[in-house]
Design a protein around this nucleic acid. Sequence first.
DNA 1: AAAATTAATTAAACAACGTTTAATTATGGG
DNA 2: CCCATAATTAAACGTTGTTTAATTAATTTT
Lengths: 203, 203
Amino acid sequence: MARRSDHSRDEIREMALSAVEELVSKKGYEGLSARKVAAAIGYTVGTLYLVFENLDDLVVQVNARTLDRLNLQMMEAVGEIGDDRQRLMSLGQSYIRFAEEDPHLWEMVFKHRVPRNGQLPAWYQEKVSRMFAQVERCLKPIAGHKTPGEIAQAARALWGGVHGICILAVTGKLGGVGVESVPDLAESLLINYLDGFTGSRNP
Amino acid sequence: MARRSDHSRDEIREMALSAVEELVSKKGYEGLSARKVAAAIGYTVGTLYLVFENLDDLVVQVNARTLDRLNLQMMEAVGEIGDDRQRLMSLGQSYIRFAEEDPHLWEMVFKHRVPRNGQLPAWYQEKVSRMFAQVERCLKPIAGHKTPGEIAQAARALWGGVHGICILAVTGKLGGVGVESVPDLAESLLINYLDGFTGSRNP
DNA sequence: AAAATTAATTAAACAACGTTTAATTATGGG
DNA sequence: CCCATAATTAAACGTTGTTTAATTAATTTT
């Protein structure tokens, strides 16, 4: 059969993205394959290649959705009011919770390396930057008379740090320490860094 | 032909490990394949499977060697004398230099997820722990009256942090900031964290 | 309404992959 | 010299990403 038009191009796209999310979420990145995705949505690989450039393209687009969800969850967690330091803590714990709730999907965002050109699209970079922007926004009120450049640097150092702790925990490379202590480690990192950054110890 | 015995089992093992190192170093983890390794050492895949359990086993053993080299380089960098904080800085810069000099090989250590059982061998975990032990040793003299548990936590938080910054930089996800600023970011992380950890600002 | 065009979908092919199997072939001891 | 042993390979299997040509349904044209 052909030209069934049971689903529009966008519908197929949506179905494929969801199928990948479910597959990766359950079996991990290495359990993913074009044929499995196609079978899951009731089509053949050929149809998949009509909608997506290739499998890497499909993965990048799923990663984009994951980043969007992460950004949303962090935005909800940080809220508007409250102690500035406490808001940064919430931001960190929110990041960790996201990674714990769906480790495979979260891991794929950072495990995946683009194949040919080696450069991620600009709209993708923008989603990453949005995450750092949230940290910078929380950092600004307690940064004293630090320059914007210093704040940007602090945001990246801090969030790289939180991210690294998550990665090592998820891949079992924290040296005997399990996943359960990740929030404690991140809290230690945030508290001590902020103490140093602001030059004052918090109550 | 068969039973050439041109090389002993251990020699083939050594040749294979070196071949993987060269392949991954040049083409990255995704450019690796059993057949390429076999061809590089002048044998067939079958011989490879006589010496190694499977390709994952081969990768794990290469990762072990990479971790050994990393540990060695860090040990040389930290030295014995000098300011305690400065030694921690050297440790961090040494880690970063290692990741920059051979990003693909370094990345494979943390990208690779064991397949079936999902658990890394004990001797592998021990190599990871040795790295944290170096950090703890440097941390101890400036830790005041912190407990060993607190020092262990600080070491993991700090090194998770340095590692995360490296990962984000190598995978191009630092949000517009390039690899060149990694040392600065790590220095920011270390200085501010240590300021908070010791409760005193350094000169 | 029938025919011709267009486009969606598939089946089949390709090369490469990890891994296993059976068949070879060189070496050692009798 | 032959036989048993063990090293090595060739070939096979199932799966992978991707491309190709063929098929088929819907749309347009006559």
